[in-house]
């Protein structure tokens, strides 16, 4: 029976195992096989362009130094800056400076997350609150947080509280706004599908709304970190007191007081490296992972 069926031109495949086989074939045909590029090649294509770019910047810098665009004490060479960094490293204080700033930045950021997250959720979900403070919240993002420093100094004096206040005022709005944007971008279909399966009220928020808004929220966190770090540097530059720990901002300010350009450039470089480093080592992998798991990352 089975053999005649397979040779026949009009097999009776209306029901039974043939459907399963047909379906398995369709599934196999339509499933894409992920192609993985070799690790070494990926590294080369990712790492080479920025290395070349940095090399070019250093070259231009060196040329400007060589042709004395500015006096050497105004424009030291890359090697001079490297030497200054080396001296500070050998003094053993460099990591302390970095750590002081980094721990302040991290603590400020975490507090901002703890405040910005519920704030963003309330603004996104409660119409009245949104109408009331939504515009203010996004407006605050365009206010440079350094503008808060004088006010914070008057309130809290030259203290850690001033530094944290400035960091919070910079980071909280951007984290909250990120979450609001994330919630706004949730496709209504997900919310409908959630309601159909019975995920309403708290369950709807917990199982549908929040996970759906995660990519926007992470983008907000990333921006929140950038704002934390910037605000922190603004605050450290100005809030300079003997009993406060020396962070990178204070280091920068000391360089300026001594009119030591390579010191100043070293500090700027460190601030940049820490800011970018956190973004690359912490946020970029998390973001990539979330996007990839949802198939939102275009494969290059």
């Amino acid at each position: 029976m089975a053999s005649t069926e397979t040779t026949s031109h009009t097999p009776d495949t209306k029901e039974g195992g043939d459907l399963a086989g047909l379906e398995a074939g369709l599934d196999a045909l339509e499933t894409q096989t992920a192609q993985r590029t070799a690790f070494g090649r990926k590294l080369l294509s990712k790492a080479l362009p920025p290395i070349v770019a940095i090399g070019l910047v250093l070259l231009l810098w060196q040329l400007a130094y060589h042709f004395k665009v500015k006096e050497h004490y105004l424009l030291p060479s890359p090697a001079d800056v490297g030497r200054t960094l080396q001296e500070k490293w050998l003094e053993g204080t460099l990591l302390d400076y970095v750590w002081t700033s980094l721990s302040r930045g991290a603590l400020g950021f975490l507090i901002s997350v703890a405040i910005g997250t519920p704030l963003g959720l309330i603004v996104a979900r409660v119409k009245v609150v949104r109408a009331a403070i939504g515009p203010i919240l996004s407006g605050l993002q365009s206010l440079p947080s350094v503008a808060w420093v004088p006010a914070a100094i008057i309130w809290f004096g030259l203290s850690d509280a001033t530094i944290y206040a400035v960091v919070l005022l910079g980071a909280v709005p951007s984290i909250a706004n990120g979450l609001v944007a994330g919630v706004d971008q949730v496709p209504p279909l997900y919310l409908r599908a959630g309601r159909v399966i019975g995920a309403t009220g708290f369950n709807g928020v917990r199982h549908v709304l929040l996970p759906a808004a995660l990519p926007g929220y992470i983008a907000g966190l990333k921006q929140g970190w950038a704002f934390s770090w910037r605000s922190l540097m603004a605050a450290e530059l100005i809030v300079n007191a003997a009993d406060l720990g020396v962070g990178l901002g204070q280091l920068l300010e000391q360089g300026r007081e001594l009119q030591d350009m390579s010191w100043v450039l070293s500090a700027i470089l460190l601030i940049l490296v820490v800011g970018i480093g956190i973004e690359l080592l912490l946020f970029a992998p998390i973001e990539r992972r979330v996007l990839r798991s949802r198939g939102l990352l275009a494969k290059s």
């Binding site: 409908r192 159909v196 759906a212």
Partner: peptide, 14 residues
């Protein structure tokens, strides 16, 4: 509560 299937699969990508 009836079950409902849409034109789009409406599965949660996370």
């Amino acid at each position: 509560r009836p079950a409902l299937m849409f034109q789009e699969h409406a599965l949660f990508p996370w």
